[in-house]
Nucleic acid binder design. Structure first.
Length: 474
DNA sequence: CTATGGCACGGATT
DNA sequence: AATCCGTGCCATAG
């Protein structure tokens, strides 16, 4: 199967190859920007946006009325919005993997999952909605991304429906109060603040929590207890309690179960909160023996394609202007093909990782087997730099809904750090770094005392002397 | 005197 | 060639 790829690569022109490589290096957000700028510049490109019924949120075909609810959508003034982040090139984007069988995943599965969030919320607020508010709510709900955040500005929605922003705001406010709390917030920060507010109605929250979220989110995301204590002017113990409170009770991605795990101590230049570039999930979520499925996410809503009008116009064009248009068409073709190529490369990489690191993906950090990019490159028969580009700056969501950077798959220290965590979690009284080092050595992880200290910091574990009953402190 | 964090070096990885 | 990572040495805090 790896010959397939190199065969395809050989048929590429150098221009193709160059563009594919540059696209490969981009993560989902950068790719989105890039495509949108090209879309604006090149009339031969077109983005076809699928639509959804504003009443029941199900996908629609063309202008046909909604097949599910009897509600007719024939009236074209009815607002219909849709979000899909999956690639519309099934055989490229979806790939079943397993030790035993290779099973084709159900294409609608992911979409319906997303739809469920919208429906779930709709059920909660439906009773409070007036007829006029319903389309607004539908617009908001269908625009939520996989994180449960609302990436489009409130004003845009208001303008679209010709209603005052305050009306939209009122609907949005109700949505944000639904479960999962904070859903519909524009940013992770906002989501945290909303959750904090909701929480504060029922119980006491640390007074500094708000300030910490507003001003020092990056420290929270990275477990930087020390830095946070300096920034807020409190002791490290208080700071640690604060971080713990926030991480246990609040969630920057309302629709996801957990914080993204970003706390590698070396100040990574990667943004802390992002939607993933890819998903790895079980083909059947209930069955832990089922194959893993990898899915590359698209930054676009809908499908990128050549504009049919443009092609028709080109055919009827007089010879003088023709070359320029032809060029646009060629560029558009190239882009689409290169995008497919980028997907292909990512799929190859993720398939390999999913198979090689199945235990890590399903059962946690301590099962990561050491792996280098060079090994992957050798096995896949591509250049090392290709693997590097594919890995850098990208994230995956695992079946447990955690979002991790792809670099994590190549982190040698991860199993050791997992072991460190369990030791500390089970310790009777705080162990010093050197004591920890000897314990780890017994477990087969011979690392130096100094290194224990580094890992400890990465894991957000306080030094021994500060490690007393902070668990109840809140 | 012990525990820990800072700095910097060398080898591996990208 | 540039970067990352583990480690040793040393200063400092408790």
């Amino acid at each position: 199967m790896y010959q397939i790829q190199s065969q395809e690569l050989r048929t590429l022109t150098t221009a193709h190859l160059a563009q594919t490589m540059s696209l490969l290096a981009l993560n989902i957000e950068e790719l989105g920007e890039k495509i949108h700028s090209l879309l604006a510049k090149n009339p031969a490109l077109e983005l076809e946006e699928p639509r959804r019924c504003p009443q029941c949120l199900r996908p629609l075909q063309g202008n046909a009325p909604c097949p599910v609810c009897s509600h007719s959508t024939g009236n074209s003034s009815e607002p219909v919005v849709f979000v899909s982040h999956r690639w519309d090139v099934p055989e490229r984007a979806f790939t079943g993997i397993s030790a035993s069988s290779e099973e084709a995943p159900v294409l609608d599965e992911y979409v319906s999952e997303e739809q469920n969030l919208a429906l779930y919320i709709l059920q909660q607020i439906a009773p409070t909605l007036t007829a006029a508010e319903r389309p607004v709510a539908a617009h908001i709900l269908t625009s939520l991304d996989e994180d449960g955040l609302l990436p489009i500005p409130l004003l845009e929605i208001a303008r679209y429906h010709h209603v005052p922003p305050s009306r939209v705001e009122s609907v949005l406010h109700r949505i944000q109060r639904c479960d999962p709390p904070g859903v519909g917030a524009p940013t992770p920060k906002e989501a945290l603040l909303i959750q904090l507010e909701i929480l504060s109605e029922n119980r006491d929250v640390p007074p500094l929590a708000r300030q910490a979220i507003e001003g020092h989110l990056e420290h929270l995301g990275r477990y930087q207890v020390h830095e946070l204590s300096l920034a807020l002017g409190v002791t490290e113990t208080e700071s640690a309690a604060l971080v713990q409170f926030i991480r246990e009770n609040l969630n920057p991605y309302p629709a996801r179960a957990h914080w993204g795990d970003w706390h590698h101590g070396s100040a990574a230049a990667v943004p802390v909160y992002r939607r993933p570039d890819a998903l790895i999930r079980l083909a059947s979520p209930r069955d832990p023996e089922s194959p893993l499925v990898v899915e590359i996410l698209s930054p676009l809503r809908g499908q990128l394609r050549l504009n049919p009008l443009f092609r028709r116009a080109l055919a009827e064009m007089d010879a003088a202007q023709r070359p320029a248009w032809q060029k646009d068409l060629e560029r558009a073709r190239l882009l689409i093909k290169s995008l497919g190529q980028r997907n292909q490369a990512l799929v190859q990489l993720l398939r390999y990782l999913a198979r090689k690191q199945r235990d890590f993906i399903l059962h946690g950090d301590q099962y990561l087997t050491p792996l280098t990019r060079a090994q992957v490159a050798a096995f896949l028969g591509v250049h090392e730099s290709t693997v590097s580009r594919a890995v850098s700056g990208k994230t995956v969501q695992l079946p447990n809904r955690r979002i991790i950077p792809l670099e994590r798959f190549f982190d040698r220290s991860l199993p050791v750090r997992a072991a460190l965590r369990t030791i500390v979690a089970q310790e009777e009284k705080p162990l010093s770094d050197s004591q920890l080092a000897t314990r780890l050595k017994k477990l087969g992880y011979p690392i130096a005392r100094r290194t224990v200290a580094k890992y400890r910091q990465m894991e957000g574990i306080l030094p021994a002397r500060l490690r007393h009953g902070i668990a109840n402190h809140a």
